[in-house]
C-alpha cells in the first residue's frame, strides 16, 4: 500500500523520569518538598513507554518514510538521556524547558505540549507513551488530544497507515480492539508494541552532532496561571510493608518444595 503523503510528519512526546528500576532500598521520598528523590548515582531515563512510542514512529519511518520530531516538556534535562531517541533514529529534538515547568500536573504538561505542537508546524500524527512511570497518570495523551481537537486512541500495540487514516490495535485485558481514525490523530503506545530498538553506534554519533531546539515559556506564550496544579498534594509517603515471610527449608530444594505443599495444606490454603 502507498502512504497518503510521504513522509509522515510525526511528533513523539517523551518525558525524562527517575529510573523506575531504581532498587527499592534506594527509593526515597522527601517529605518536606513531597517529591521522590533520585537515588545518588542513578541517572534519569526516558520513560519506557515513550521509548515504545519512539519505536512506533521509527517503524513508520522504516516502512513508509517519516520525519520524527521528539518533544519534551520539563526542566533539568540531562542531554545524554534526552538524546537517546535521536540516537535510536529520530530526526529532531525540541525541548520546552523553563524554570516554571516544575511539578506540573498532567493538565499543565498537556497545555504546554499543545503550544509546542502548534509551534512546530504541520503534522500528521502525535505519539505518546501510555503513561509515565513516575506518577503513572496516563492522562497527558488524552488531555493533549482534547486540547488539540484530535481523535485519540490509547494503549496501542500496533499501528498502521491505511488510506487517509490510521488503523490501531488497542490492547485490552483480554485481547485487543481495532480502532480506525482519520489523520491527524494522537495515539498513546504500550509495551505490547515490542521492544524499542537499541541505538546504533552510527546513531549515537549522529545524535551527538545534533543540537536540540529549546523553547522557553515566553517563546511558547505560556499563560503561567494555567500551570497551577488542579489538585493539592497533601502527602507523599512510602507505604509501610510489614509482612513477615516464613521461609520453608528442607534437606534440599526438592524437599523444601514438598514441605511447602504440606505447610499450605496445614494452613488450609490448598
Amino acid at each position: 500500500m502507498t502512504s497518503p503523503r510521504a513522509p509522515v510528519r510525526i511528533l513523539v512526546c517523551v518525558k525524562q523520569v527517575i529510573d523506575p528500576e531504581t532498587p527499592l532500598s534506594a527509593f526515597k521520598v522527601d517529605p518536606a518538598t513531597k517529591r521522590v528523590l533520585a537515588a545518588p548515582g542513578v541517572p534519569p531515563v526516558v520513560n519506557g513507554f515513550d521509548e515504545n512510542a519512539v519505536e512506533a514512529a521509527l517503524r513508520l519511518k522504516d516502512t513508509v518514510g517519516a520525519e520524527v520530531t521528539v518533544l519534551s516538556v520539563g526542566q533539568g534535562f540531562i542531554m545524554d538521556v534526552m538524546k537517546k531517541p535521536l540516537s535510536m533514529g529520530a530526526d529532531r529534538l525540541v525541548l520546552a524547558q523553563d524554570p516554571s515547568f516544575q511539578d506540573l500536573d498532567p493538565f499543565a504538561t498537556a497545555y504546554i505540549l499543545s503550544l509546542a505542537v502548534r509551534k512546530s508546524g504541520a503534522f500528521d500524527l502525535v505519539l505518546c507513551g501510555r503513561q509515565a512511570s513516575d506518577w503513572d497518570n496516563a492522562q497527558v495523551p488524552l488531555v493533549l488530544a482534547e486540547l488539540l481537537g484530535l481523535p485519540c486512541v490509547t494503549v496501542a500495540q500496533k499501528l498502521e497507515l491505511a488510506g487517509k487514516g490510521l488503523v490501531v490495535q488497542r490492547a485490552l485485558p483480554d485481547g485487543y480492539e481495532v480502532v480506525e481514525a482519520p489523520l491527524p490523530a494522537l495515539v498513546s503506545v504500550s509495551n505490547e508494541l515490542g521492544e524499542p530498538r537499541y541505538p546504533t553506534l552510527r546513531g549515537i554519533m549522529a545524535a551527538g552532532k545534533k543540537t536540540p531546539v529549546t523553547w522557553t515559556a515566553a517563546d511558547l506564550g505560556v499563560d503561567l496561571a494555567r500551570l497551577a496544579p488542579k489538585l493539592r498534594v497533601l502527602d507523599l509517603f512510602a507505604p509501610p510493608r510489614e509482612k513477615q515471610c516464613e521461609f520453608v527449608a528442607g534437606e534440599n530444594e526438592a524437599d523444601a518444595g514438598r514441605l511447602l505443599a504440606l505447610k499450605l495444606r496445614e494452613d488450609k490454603l490448598i
Binding site: K243, E246, E253, A254, G257, A261, L262
Partner: peptide, 27 residues
C-alpha cells in the same frame, strides 16, 4: 519475600516438581 507469607529460596527447577507432586497427593 518482603510481601510473601511463605517462601522457598531455591531454584524452581528443583523446588517445583516436588511441590507439584506433593500438591497432587494432597488434593
Amino acid at each position: 519475600f518482603k510481601e510473601a507469607r511463605y517462601g522457598v529460596v531455591g531454584d524452581w527447577k528443583k523446588v517445583l516438581p516436588s511441590f507439584i507432586e506433593a500438591v497432587r497427593e494432597l488434593v
